[in-house]
Amino acid sequence: MISRYPYSMRLLHWSMAALMVSMLCAGLLMVRSLEPWQLTLLNMHKSFGLVAALLIVVRTVNRLRLKLPTPSEPQNRYQSAVANTVHRLLYALMFLMPLTGLLMQYAAARPVDVFGAFRLPAAELTDIQQFAVFRELHGLLAVVFMGIIALHIAGACHHYLSARRR
């Protein structure tokens, strides 16, 4: 029986948490801004978005491979069901955000330049309807993602505080 999350999971949790929050902020800023840094931020968003896509695969494999800690205190069944659902949703969104981003760029025939090192292929003919689907999904899922993250953080804070009260 273990009482803490394994190191690899904690490392992935915190690096990806920082990455996801930065990606959301970058996304919201860059679709509005007309400033000269917009293009730089857009390119970073796409490059780090690819990193996020790779990390979530690693994280999922790691999660399936490792044993989770047993809760240190008796858990409220309702609470843990909510926490589990939130975690599943977070995983799903961490997959869907980069996926819709990449597909949107593919459909719009915009090759993604990854850190100036290499380029991802894109469609040679634009498909505007496919673009519309992935563009709107990317925007919509981002809003859902922010809501779920807020819920998750609120849950974590609640858990932390109630554990201290005991």
Partner: peptide
């Protein structure tokens, strides 16, 4: 030049949605 990308993307987003 740097302002063009975001503006074109906004116009494109609107018309793409309307097309869909």
């Amino acid at each position: 030049l740097r302002a063009r990308s975001a503006a074109y993307a906004e116009s494109y987003r609107r018309r793409a949605w309307e097309r869909l």
